[in-house]
C-alpha cells in the first residue's frame, strides 16, 4: 500500500513561560496508507488532537516533518499553503456545538470551502451544497437555517459536509462521535463509512472509544503522553495487546456483556497520566506500568517491529 501521509519524528511542544514546555507530541512517526483508516487512541492529554491538528497544519511543527504523497509540507503554514492544501486535507472537529459559526447559515458554512477553493460560480456552488446536504442525510431546504436549529448529530453531519465538499483525499476526524448519543453515533459512523467507500478517503480517526475505533479502523495506533506505544491491525491490537499500556486501556474499556465483565479481573491501574510538562525519563508509562523493568526508568524504548507481524511496540519487554 502506497503511503499517502507520513509523519517523520513529528514533534510539537508548547512553551508555557518560565522556560517550561508542554511535550504534547514527541517524536511521532506514523505512516497512513492510501484509502486506509488509522485509529488513534489514548487518554485525554495524550496528544491525540494536537497530533491531528499538526498533521493538517493547524499547529506548526516544532521539529520533524509531514509528507503528503511524498511531498514534504512546510514547517508552519502560510495562507498560501492553506489555500493550496485545503482541497487535499480536511478536518472534522470534536464538538459540533462550538465548531460551527453561529452567525453563518448552514449553506454559508458548507459553501465556504468551495467559494475559496474552486472556480464554480454561485449557482453551481449552491447546487453542490444542496447535493451534499442530501448526501449527509439532511435536506436541501436546511441551507438557510442556522446551526442552533439542529441537534448534535445533525450538526456533526454539517461538519462532515463542510469537510468533504472539497472532496479531500485525507481527513482527520477528531473525536467525531464522542459528543453524540449511541444511536446517533452509529448514524455518523455509517455515513463516514459510506463516504469513505464512494470517495476513496483516507482517514485518521481520533477517538477514545476503543470499541468504536476497533470497528472503524484498519490499523490502530495507541498514544501515551505524546508518543506512540503500539501500532498494528485494529483487531489484533484490541484482542491481543502487546504493550502494557494498551493492555490496561483495553482492559479498562467496559464491554456491554455482563458475563464477560464478571469473569474479567479488574485491570484498574493506580495513578493518572503524568503532566506533559515534566516528562519522566525513560519510558513514559514506567511509573504506572504493572510490568515495569529496571531499565524502563532510564532508557526510552523505541518502536520496534515484532517478528512475523506488522505490530510495532515501544516497550523493553519485547527487546
Amino acid at each position: 500500500m502506497a503511503a499517502l501521509v507520513e509523519t517523520i519524528n513529528l514533534t510539537r511542544y508548547f512553551d508555557i513561560g518560565r522556560g517550561q514546555r508542554v511535550h504534547a507530541v514527541d517524536d511521532v512517526s506514523l505512516t497512513i496508507g492510501e484509502k486506509e483508516i488509522v485509529g488513534l487512541v489514548g487518554e485525554s492529554g495524550s496528544g491525540k488532537s494536537t497530533f491531528g491538528k499538526t498533521v493538517v497544519g493547524l499547529h506548526g511543527k516544532t521539529s520533524g516533518s509531514v509528507k503528503f504523497r511524498g511531498e514534504t509540507l512546510p514547517q508552519s503554514y502560510r495562507p498560501a499553503d492553506f489555500q493550496r492544501l485545503a482541497s487535499k486535507m480536511q478536518m472534522i472537529f470534536q464538538d459540533p456545538y462550538s465548531s460551527l459559526n453561529p452567525r453563518m447559515t448552514v449553506g454559508e458554512i458548507i459553501a465556504e470551502g468551495l467559494r475559496l477553493h474552486s472556480t464554480l460560480d454561485s449557482k453551481q456552488v449552491q447546487a453542490r451544497v444542496e447535493e451534499w446536504l442530501v448526501r449527509v442525510g439532511l435536506q436541501a431546504g436546511h441551507m438557510s437555517r442556522y446551526s442552533h436549529e439542529f441537534s448534535g448529530g445533525q450538526r456533526q453531519r454539517i461538519g462532515i459536509a463542510r469537510a468533504l465538499i472539497l472532496e479531500p483525499e485525507f481527513v482527520v476526524c477528531d473525536e467525531p462521535i464522542s459528543a453524540l448519543d449511541v444511536s446517533v453515533q452509529a448514524q455518523v459512523i455509517n455515513l463516514l463509512g459510506e463516504l469513505k467507500e464512494t470517495l476513496g478517503l483516507t482517514l485518521l480517526f481520533i477517538a477514545h472509544d476503543l470499541s468504536m475505533v476497533r470497528y472503524v479502523s484498519d490499523r490502530m495506533a495507541v498514544m501515551y503522553l505524546g508518543s506512540l506505544v503500539e501500532i498494528g491491525k485494529a483487531d489484533a491490537v484490541y484482542f491481543d495487546p502487546k504493550h502494557p499500556y494498551t493492555e490496561v486501556l483495553v482492559g479498562s474499556n467496559p464491554e456491554p456483556d455482563p458475563e464477560l465483565e464478571r469473569r474479567r479481573p479488574s485491570t484498574a491501574i493506580v495513578g493518572e497520566i503524568p503532566s506533559p510538562v515534566n516528562v519522566p525519563q525513560g519510558c513514559r508509562f514506567a511509573n504506572r506500568c504493572p510490568k515495569v523493568l529496571e531499565q524502563c526508568r532510564s532508557v526510552t524504548p523505541q518502536l520496534i517491529t515484532l517478528k512475523d507481524s506488522e505490530r510495532q511496540v515501544a516497550c523493553h519487554l519485547y527487546n
Binding site: S151, V182, S183, V184, Q185, A186, Q187, I189, N190, S211, M212, R214, Y215, D235, F239, E255, P256, D257, L260
Partner: peptide, 24 residues
C-alpha cells in the same frame, strides 16, 4: 435491542454493520 445493534460487538467474527436508530 436498537441500542445494542447500534454498537460494535466485542467479537470480530460476529461483527455486523452498525444499525443506527433513525429519527429522534
Amino acid at each position: 435491542l436498537g441500542l445494542k445493534l447500534a454498537m460494535p460487538t466485542n467479537d470480530p467474527d460476529k461483527q455486523h454493520k452498525l444499525n443506527p436508530i433513525d429519527g429522534s
